[in-house]
Nucleic acid binder design. Structure first.
Lengths: 214, 214
DNA sequence: ATTAGTTATAGTCAAAATGACTAGAACTAA
DNA sequence: TTAGTTCTAGTCATTTTGACTATAACTAAT
């Protein structure tokens, strides 16, 4: 389950996109589905998630966290399947060079059709978690590059939370978080006053996962 | 992973307790461990968690939520094990009639020795999640019975967060949450002014799990 | 060169939430 | 009757939040 920012087709503003893969076998042959694959005996859960992500889409996550273990009895019509789902955020530079093909394509997170298995529900839950985490923790920065303007951060929040935020108040809040560091660089090339660039100095999170894999 | 409130041995105030089972085989024979067991083909994840809980301790959870899937390579010295851990809250009435025995015993959550496998780390994470959930959501009530006083709620918070809270301010906050309903009953039998009884009217949570199992 | 247009940024002010505290109400036990 | 205890309502200063105003700094058009 991968999230990335891409400019909207119409407005050009950043919106949330998700890469999906086409099912080439039954069940649900032809439908779009989340990328995934089996867990081997010699890899940890996050390693397996990263590997599957890499193999199917060529993407490398800047943030990876366990979402949930789905184990309902009828998730697949043919057999019992338990899926330990991870969700990842990737930076725009990464997302841009992701390999799209006949069977791998990006979709807007809010405009998905019917997917295979229970993947619609999984994505819904992942979106809920993403919004939740953004409201509290400092996670939005993993969707951006190393340097960013405060307006870009605000656009991320606006895209994910789907509502407009007051620029002045938002900037006040972000500047109050200690993990945001002011640089002395400015983003040039706009059609107006150049905004200052900032960077994020915090570390990902407090998952049990996020301890070095020995 | 089960949490329940029991009166502290010394102060008599409610504290967090956890039931553990003794390992009767290798590996870690003789050490205490979290209750658990295999997942069968015909039960969902929460059903399996409930069943294992019932079989090992005789407890029925008033709240059950998925904690995390642990899948490190070296969790067990003998084989690769992936554990999808659930955590439960049980009410004091339930907890009182739990079957203690030679191989099942309650421990204070903050005074555990060395446990089998990675169970110390799992419990640490569960405690972190419990504290987190309590700070935001309305979960403390599942550790109490149907009727409770505001002082009892405060004691739960104090036990879990491990710090004292101002009674007056705490009461103001709790009374502001819409899920708390005032009854016209009072708790009699204390040595002082009898406190009013309240009840919790909210529903558990927003887990993907918490949808009816068909 | 000047002006209009746009975004960046700082600051003000009222409303709401929080933390520390006071005081009376309502019971039990001596 | 009084002392001791907790319950409960309320005050007040501080902090946080939301709505808003105003100036700064740039580009593009005239």
């Amino acid at each position: 389950m991968i999230f990335a920012l891409r400019p909207s087709e119409r407005s050009g503003r950043p919106t949330l996109w998700i890469p999906l893969v086409r099912r080439i076998r039954e069940p649900f042959k032809g439908l779009w589905a989340l990328p995934g694959g089996p867990l081997t005996h010699s890899e940890s859960l996050p390693d397996a998630a990263s590997r599957n992500l890499q193999e199917t889409t060529g993407l490398a996550p800047s943030y990876l966290e366990q979402l949930y273990a789905f184990g309902g009895l009828h998730r697949s019509p043919t057999q019992r399947v338990v899926s330990i789902v991870y969700w990842a955020l990737v930076q725009p530079t990464e997302a841009a060079l992701a390999a799209e093909s006949e069977n791998v394509r990006w979709f807007r997170a809010d405009r998905l059709g019917e997917l295979a298995f229970d993947h619609n529900a999984i994505i819904e839950y992942a979106l809920w978690r993403l919004r939740n985490k953004m409201a509290y923790g400092s996670i939005a920065y993993h969707l951006l590059g190393e340097y960013f303007t405060l307006a870009q951060v605000r656009e991320v929040y606006e895209a994910v939370l789907d509502r407009e935020l007051d620029p002045a108040n938002f900037r006040r809040q972000v500047k109050a978080t200690p993990e945001i560091e002011e640089t002395d660089q400015y983003l040039q090339g706009g059609k107006h006053r150049p905004p200052r660039l900032y960077r994020f100095t915090g570390r990902p999170g407090l998952d049990p996962d996020n301890r070095s894999t020995p």
